[in-house]
Amino acid sequence: MQNSFQIENPNPSFLETSRRDFWWIEPFFTAIGLLAFVIYSTWAAFQNEHYQWESYLSPFYAPLLEYDWWPFSPAFLILWAPAGFRLTCYYYRKAYYRSLFLTPSACAVGGRPQNYRGERFLLLFQNLHRYFLYIALVFCVILSYDAYISFTFKDGLGIGVGTVIMTLNAVFLTAFTFGCNSLRHLVGGNVDCYSCVNFGHQRYQAWKFVNIFNMNHMMWAWISLFWVGFTDLYIRLVSMGIITDYRIL
């Protein structure tokens, strides 16, 4: 039991730890989840077909921007916005820094050796999260509108499985967006004294409201991520004729 070691230099080597729980499980599955989504969404965006069926529209292609001057899939005119929103999101930063960049992969586990600079130079764009939020709020409206449209069928109003899926997609994305830390700052987090400013009470209430979603920001991040991919997949499979949309009403 005499394993001597130096701890003068606190700089632990890569992945070095005395932890003996399964600390690698979380980054491992996070990495799989993130990579799976990136691969699927990129593939789906490149397809440039099967994104519509009746009144259903894949969220990867919403709003549908088909222009003559754009030779590629219209998805690429859209996807930079939600991608940027999620890339600069404070929760996703934890997820990818831990699971993909291993800086660090888990607490008290040695991080990847690198010239670590934090938010400097290019990474200063992380501070623009609030602009992606503004766009994301517009997307919440657009996707809600698409969900509303999905209640209309050739034979009039109705509800299909796809309608439910699209509606939930709008709900989940909105719940994710409403928990955004930038939103939390803008609606009230930047106030030091609610009882001293104009509309202080309303801002306090708004801040409290955002807190509800913010507390489970990670959960909404994953649910909305999975569901947006699933919504695309469902519409794709229906449109390809592999499965049939079941009409509930």
Binding site: K94, C107, R117, R120
Partner: peptide, 8 residues
């Protein structure tokens, strides 16, 4: 700015 939100 050095914090990268890994929340340890």
């Amino acid at each position: 700015g050095y914090c990268n939100i890994t929340k340890c």
